[in-house]
């Protein structure tokens, strides 16, 4: 470990960490919010399930580096604009979460939803008061996967010059220094653990009704 490099770059590292958090959390949250109606739609209209899940999944196929590079040409942003990263990750999150939300809604016992319908819950009341709360474990389980992979994907943006923890990798490579790279990896993993635990905690807090032994 090169402590000299480390101590002289502490504030930069803190900036990068903050930027990384920001670039991860915002698109993840945005993607979740947008995936909810899409997933509901895919669940509600079974004929559209394949189309919605399949076509959103196709975005997932596009490698992130290619996505970052192509976006400016499509939406007219500058190549260095962090907005490209936010949009690309939002799209990835939607692609992952649409299927999760649809499958989460499908995992609810049909008689539960039917009971709500027959009791006179309107469609929106059903979604907010019954389906969503019951699907929380599945949806947040998917969100844990999404947030952890998003943390890794964000680092790619260093190649096109968007500053975040990935910049430590390119910096280390060009300087031939291992310290920045290891620091970056450790911080990425730390963020992943923290965000993962936060979602897990939220999932438990939102589902006091689940049998304890399976509430993992």
């Amino acid at each position: 470990m090169n402590t000299v490099w480390l101590s002289s770059n502490l504030s930069w590292i803190a900036e990068l960490t903050f930027a990384h958090l920001w670039l991860t959390v915002v698109p993840t949250a945005l993607g979740l919010v947008l995936a909810l109606p899409l997933g509901w739609w895919a669940h509600q209209v079974p004929r559209l399930y394949g189309f919605i899940v399949g076509s959103s999944g196709l975005f997932y196929t596009v490698p992130s580096l290619a996505f970052f590079v192509l976006l400016p040409g499509i939406i007219g942003t500058r190549i260095l604009d962090p907005l490209n990263v936010v949009i690309a990750l939002t799209v990835y999150t939607i692609a992952l979460m649409v299927r999760v939300v649809a499958d989460g809604l499908a995992s609810i016992p049909p008689e539960t939803v039917q009971a709500a319908e027959a009791m006179g819950y309107r469609a929106f009341q059903r979604f907010v008061l019954v389906q969503l709360p019951v699907a929380v474990p599945v949806i947040l389980g998917g969100l844990r996967v999404a947030v952890v992979s998003n943390i890794s994907i964000v680092t790619m943006a260093a190649i096109i010059g968007v500053q975040q923890l990935g910049s430590l990798f390119t910096q280390g490579y060009s300087l031939g220094l291992m310290t920045p790279i290891v620091t970056g990896i450790v911080l990425c993993l730390a963020i992943a653990v923290v965000l993962d635990l936060l979602i897990l905690w939220a999932s438990r807090a939102l589902t006091p009704w689940r049998p304890k032994e399976v509430a993992a």
């Binding site: 996967v145 790619m156 993993l189």
Partner: peptide, 18 residues
Amino acid sequence: ANSLRALPTLGLLIVVVM
């Protein structure tokens, strides 16, 4: 498998190459 998902690929790539 889960922890590999959290490992940033770019970092991994550079470390292994170096």
